[in-house]
Design a protein around this nucleic acid. Structure first.
Length: 644
RNA sequence: GCGCCCGUAGCUCAGUAGGAAAGAGCGGCGGUUUCCUAAACCGCAGGUCGUAGGUUCGAGUCCUAUCGGGCGCGCCA
């Protein structure tokens, strides 16, 4: 089992050599080791000589030569002779024997059941030879955050998909991941609904096909009535109080609404292949009775003479009837400003006594870091919030406030991971034709329908013809096609979202995401089925039993074999990258390159027709490629299929 | 007014704590199928990296201005 990526392995050796050349015992944190910019320069390169030349006042190429001399004994038979090139680059090419050995160490699939896979499939995960981290962190990932009594819509799509990748990748790395779905299940809006259901029946599955849709319609009707009927509005406000004070009737209606909402959310999550379950729900209501003491506590922590952190400071003060946290910078100037230039506070209690998002967030982080009861009894060391970029200011204020209050220590990492909006082809936020939010339920149905249509139109011609020509055993049955269409459709939506840098806005396009060429889910899934097809045929011919036998030597003589092998050997780098930088698109890029490398290998290296030794070697490469694709796509929350 | 994000090929986007001649896909043009799925593969064409300064041996990448687009900024989440 491997802990270090190739890059880390090379980097530590070069770092040691650098220290030696620089004449220090301090090993540099960065040995300047990068992927080679161009294949002609090898696989990796070390760029540290130029920088070191400056401090040593020696010519860069001379420094490079010294590094080369110092590092070569450390590298053994890992690399071909190093080359110093250009102004002082050191080009590194891994030896084929090393690459082959490296891959040969990946054992036949050993399944691990500690990593979550898909909601409906509890198949253990094939780690493809990658070891978990030795020092796992407890990581909270908060994502999705739908609102009770409303259907999930496109606005929830990105956060749900992206957050799920973090949960998966971090869990795979061996961290102790706690998913948290901070659902909006509390607040004044429930007064209207509770009041409404005094005189209307609560929708049930017996009366409505989509219960949540019915509740949402009622909610809109109640809002309308709230605006027009003052008596109704007053009663609705009273209902809020009843709910908060635990009135059994109000409480019951609220619980029913929540239960129906969760049911609908869970259905969407399962269909999307997202890990979130009702167990992960800890909504705003959960923190309700912690809010009053929290505000009181914050008054203590942030009193003007109270605890301070660095030179920043904050104070709690009532302003215009609201309880506010005012934050100041090192110069004593306001940290945040309103449009009119006045000091912008973070409001933690409204003038009417109600609490806000900020208050709940503070309560939640306190809970996660201090109170969360887990087997080992420790709180989270890393908390990741996945929300859209527009909430940036809120999180900035919230994080600073929590730090200033001393609730988030220096050893804890809190991260706001943002993403851009989903836009339509008009570059405006994606809406339906009549200007409404696109329901996730409908969007996913369309994805599946479009994928089905794609398969059907393709099959009309080629599949039947290929069956007649004896090229394939049987055309797809309609059931299979529906199954495949579901996987491909959902995968297309998720992959299209994940494969671009999450910071920017992104233009939603069915045609782009369902394309068979390019960096898309269908292309990758197709590559996987091609590999599996070879393997099936090999099994039919009885030639796969021993691909992982110790005497099978991986031959990397053809350039496409070598390129594929190198890519496979870099899996660890790709996964480490997502887990530490929280950038799903870099894993997508890796997998796309892997699929493309496989396709090129496939075009130029016959597998089944090759002689025994070569066939087994290539078959093993194929299987490693399939396993790597399945794992990588699985970490992206995408399930592969065996045929397309 | 202040703050954040974005600006790279006709289009959609990569470009990894500054490193060698700027990369994909789509679209365009041209090739490849007695061969494991042609839903593929290969080749060609196409860029003053918004603009102007600066730092550096070296800048798409860092700094400062500036233009253009998006978003945010007291009792919403």
């Amino acid at each position: 089992m491997k802990h270090d990526s190739l890059q880390q392995m090379l980097s530590t050796r070069f770092a040691a050599a650098l220290a030696q050349v620089a004449g220090t015992t301090a090993v540099p944190a960065d040995a300047g080791l990068r992927l080679a910019g161009d294949p002609q320069f090898g696989d990796y390169q070390c760029n540290a000589a130029m920088a070191l030349a400056k401090t040593l006042k020696i010519k860069p190429r001379e420094v490079a030569e010294r590094i080369k001399a110092a590092v070569e004994p450390l590298l053994g038979d890992v690399v071909e002779p190093l080359e110093v090139a250009g102004p002082g680059f050191i080009n590194i090419r891994l030896r084929n024997e090393f690459l082959a050995r490296h891959l040969a160490e990946i054992p036949a699939p050993e399944l691990c059941s500690h990593v979550p896979t898909f909601p409906h499939s509890h198949a253990p995960v094939d780690r493809v030879g990658l070891a978990p981290v030795t020092q796992p962190l407890r990581v909270v990932v908060e994502y999705s955050q739908p609102n009770i009594a409303k259907q999930m819509h496109v606005g929830h799509l990105r956060g749900t998909i992206i957050g799920d990748v973090f949960a998966r990748a971090l869990a795979f790395e061996g961290h102790d991941v706690i998913r948290q779905n901070h659902i909006g299940d509390w607040g004044t809006q429930f007064g209207m609904l509770i009041r409404w259901y005094r005189e209307h029946p609560l929708p049930t599955s017996a009366t409505h096909g989509d219960v949540l849709e019915a509740i949402e319609n009622d909610y809109r009707a109640a809002q309308e009535r709230f605006k027009q009927d003052p008596a109704f509005a007053d009663e609705a406000r009273l209902c809020v109080g009843q709910l908060q004070s635990g009135d059994p009737v109000a409480r019951h209606v609220w619980q029913q609404i929540c239960a129906e909402s969760w049911r609908a959310f869970t259905e969407i999550y399962a269909r999307l292949g997202v890990l979130l379950t009702p167990d992960d729900v800890r909504g705003e209501s959960f923190y309700n009775d912690r809010l009053e003491p929290l505000v009181a506590g914050l008054r203590q922590e942030l009193s003007p003479a109270g605890s301070q952190c660095d030179s920043l400071r904050a104070e709690v003060r009532d302003d215009q009837g609201a309880v506010c946290v005012f934050m100041y910078d090192e110069q004593g100037q306001p940290r945040f400003k309103a449009p009119d230039g006045s000091h912008l506070p973070m409001i933690i209690q409204k003038s009417d006594g109600a609490y806000l998002y900020a208050t709940t967030d503070l309560a939640a982080i306190r809970f996660r870091l201090r109170d969360l009861e887990f087997p080992t009894g420790r709180g989270a060391q890393r908390v990741i919030y996945v929300t859209d970029a527009r909430q940036k200011l809120h999180f900035q204020m919230f994080f600073e406030c929590a730090r200033l209050a001393g609730w988030v220590g220096p050893d804890v990492s809190v991260e706001h991971v943002t993403y851009g909006s989903v836009l339509g082809s008009d570059r405006r936020p994606l809406k339906t034709r009549d200007g409404k939010n696109v329901k996730l339920r409908e969007l996913l149905a369309e994805a599946e329908a479009r994928a089905y249509e794609l398969l059907r139109s393709r099959d009309e011609g080629t599949e039947a013809r290929r069956h007649e020509a004896g090229e394939i055993a049987a055309p797809l049955s309609d059931d299979e096609r529906r199954h495949i269409a579901r996987r491909v459709g959902i995968a297309a939506v998720k992959y299209a979202d994940l494969c671009r840098d999450r910071n920017g806005d992104y233009v939603f396009s069915w045609d782009t995401m369902l394309a068979m060429q390019g960096n898309t889910a269908p292309y990758m899934m197709y590559a996987y089925t091609r590999i599996r097809s070879i393997y099936r045929k090999a099994v039919d011919r009885g030639g796969t039993a021993d691909v992982y036998a110790p005497d099978v030597k991986l031959a990397l003589d053809h350039p496409t074999e070598r390129a594929l092998a190198l890519r496979l050997a870099r899996l660890r780098e790709a996964i480490d990258d997502v887990a530490s930088n929280l950038t799903p698109h870099t894993l997508c890029a890796y997998l796309y390159e892997l699929a493309a490398d496989f396709m090129r290998f496939y075009e130029s290296c016959p597998v089944l027709a090759a002689d025994d030794a070569v066939r087994l070697s290539r078959l093993r490469l194929c299987d490693l490629a399939a396993r790597t694709l399945r794992l990588g796509l699985g970490l992206l929350g995408i399930e592969v299929i065996e045929r397309m």
